[in-house]
Design a binder for these strands. Structure first.
Lengths: 122, 122
DNA sequence: CAGTATCCTATATGATACTG
DNA sequence: CAGTATCATATAGGATACTG
């Protein structure tokens, strides 16, 4: 029985909860995982994270930038070039998120089997 | 430069992505973290995960049960008693999610500082 | 006690077209 | 190229009353 009392994330008033909620959206984890590979341009990110719309990618990157997890480098060129990169803090988040991505991939067969079993029952 | 090509989660067609999306909601991570402490009743879960409504808790638990991550034990008593517990598969998910919760708590000062810096600039 | 049923609001997501 | 602007939909979340 591990103790949970020290987990402030569970407390409504704790700001760390907002941080966990930020990660908890459909795209953040994927963007951070991709950026783990290194500095990347907007268009490359868009291609890597399949199905993300430019609007959503922009919003996701802005949020990550605001939280100090991603740095944005804009070059005054024509055509414009903008690159994104994980900050040191962002790298510390990449580790657990990468682990989560791995989990999803490794265990998807069991999850799918469980879903099928559940759905055929009810 | 780590390789990302082997990350199917990024692929639109890969079902592992739905699995990652399931985890990526405001409540799932918290419920799994709490259940890491052991078998627990509905009411206790509700108290532990502060601010969750009964509707949302029920939905979260159903989804987790369907994915084979949580087992539900209902006792035919009056008043009724229902307990929830992580399955073996659920425990393997608990590990990375617990790490994520820890990350949120440990790094919230930096995140808050980054937000403040960002917001005062623009 | 452990949910369901309802109703309502907020936010996320999507599809595109457009511009510096 | 790297976004913005717009509009429309979907889904999540929240409050609360009710029931086996």
């Amino acid at each position: 029985m591990t103790q949970q009392a020290d987990f402030n994330v569970l407390t409504e008033t704790c700001p760390s909860r907002t941080s966990l909620s930020r990660i908890a959206n459909k795209w953040t984890a994927m963007v951070v995982i991709v950026l783990g590979a290194g500095r990347m341009r907007f268009g490359d990110l868009r291609a890597a994270v399949q199905g993300i719309s430019p609007k959503v990618l922009t919003g996701t990157l802005r949020d990550l930038e605001r939280d100090g997890l991603v740095a944005r480098y804009a070059y005054a060129e024509i055509p414009p070039r903008v690159e994104y990169e994980l900050t040191a803090l962002g790298h510390t988040l990449h580790t657990p998120l990468h682990a989560l991505g791995r989990w999803a991939e490794e265990n998807i067969p069991e999850v799918l089997a469980a879903r099928e079993a559940y759905d055929t029952l009810r």
